[in-house]
Amino acid sequence: MAFLGTYNYWIFITLMMIGLYIVIVRGNLVKKIIGLNIFQSSVFLFFISVGKVSDGTAPIILHDGGEAIYSNPLPHVLILTAIVVAVSTSALALALIVRIHESYGTLQEELIHEAERAP
């Protein structure tokens, strides 16, 4: 049952592999970016999982001053930053894709390489 207890990490690894696979295998530049996004999102899930404390609650001081177990809020904050970074990366990549489409007329990697080899 140890396997099920860490199921979120298994999801992280599966998503990560799917994302990387798309980045490597797909020839369409937009699909590559989607793969990259899946890959990055998987890492976000990993960070969030790390911050979870069993039976922990949101890290807000209780009204009655009682004791409570808190989840670690830091990974969430880090991931907010990382999400911003990922969004900027996607935006920049899509802008590049628009320019590439303008000058090559295609988004297929092989066709772009062919066009580059041609004098």
Binding site: V23, F39, V43, T89, L96
Partner: peptide, 26 residues
């Protein structure tokens, strides 16, 4: 125009590298 594809390639590999770095830090 090859600058565009070079930048795109760098973006893909650079982001994979940076995300690996992030996993390590995590």
């Amino acid at each position: 125009r090859r600058a565009l594809t070079a930048a795109f390639q760098y973006l893909i590999l650079g982001t994979v590298g940076a995300t690996f770095f992030l996993i390590g830090v995590g």
